[in-house]
Simulated assay, not measured.
Amino acid sequence: MEMKETTADERPAKTAEEAVERLREALRGVGIILPSLRIDPVSGAHGHPYALVDLGRCNIGVASKLAAALRVKGGDA
């Protein structure tokens, strides 16, 4: 059985800030900007390792682009 080497992007983020930044960059890479993307202020208040990421709100155009990008990545295009 061949072992697949994981890249830095495939490894779990060590901090909530890192997770949000990786997500922001990945979304930007497919032309999607979620203006409200942030760390949830309540769960992330004390640097909790399992802080929630708040994706925020977006308009239907952005939601449609996000769905299309996920379908392409998942092979359902």
Rank of each mutant, 00 (worst) to 15 (best):
V62R: 13
E18H: 00
A77G: 11
S36G: 01
D54L: 07
L52G: 09
I32N: 08
A68F: 08
S43M: 09
G44F: 01
A26P: 15
M3A: 14
V62Y: 12
L27D: 03
I32E: 13
P12K: 14
G74N: 11
G47V: 09
E25L: 09
M1Q: 10
S36H: 12
A51I: 08
C58Q: 10
D40Y: 04
A19F: 07
G61D: 14
L66S: 01
V30G: 13
A68D: 11
E18L: 03
I60P: 11
D54K: 05
L70F: 13
V72Y: 11
A67D: 07
T15N: 08
E10K: 03
K14Q: 14
A8C: 00
D54S: 10
G29A: 04
R22Q: 07
L66F: 13
G29L: 05
A63K: 02
R38E: 10
V42N: 07
L52M: 14
A63C: 09
A63D: 02
M1N: 12
V20W: 04
R24P: 00
H46N: 08
E21M: 02
A16R: 02
A67K: 15
L66M: 14
A69K: 10
D54H: 12
A69N: 06
P49F: 14
S64A: 14
L34H: 06
R57I: 11
T6V: 07
K4Q: 10
G61E: 10
L37Y: 08
E2A: 13
A51C: 12
I60Q: 13
A19N: 08
L52I: 02
C58K: 01
D40K: 04
V53G: 04
V42A: 02
H46I: 07
D40E: 09
V42I: 14
A16G: 15
A13Y: 01
A69V: 10
R24F: 02
V62S: 11
A63S: 10
C58R: 01
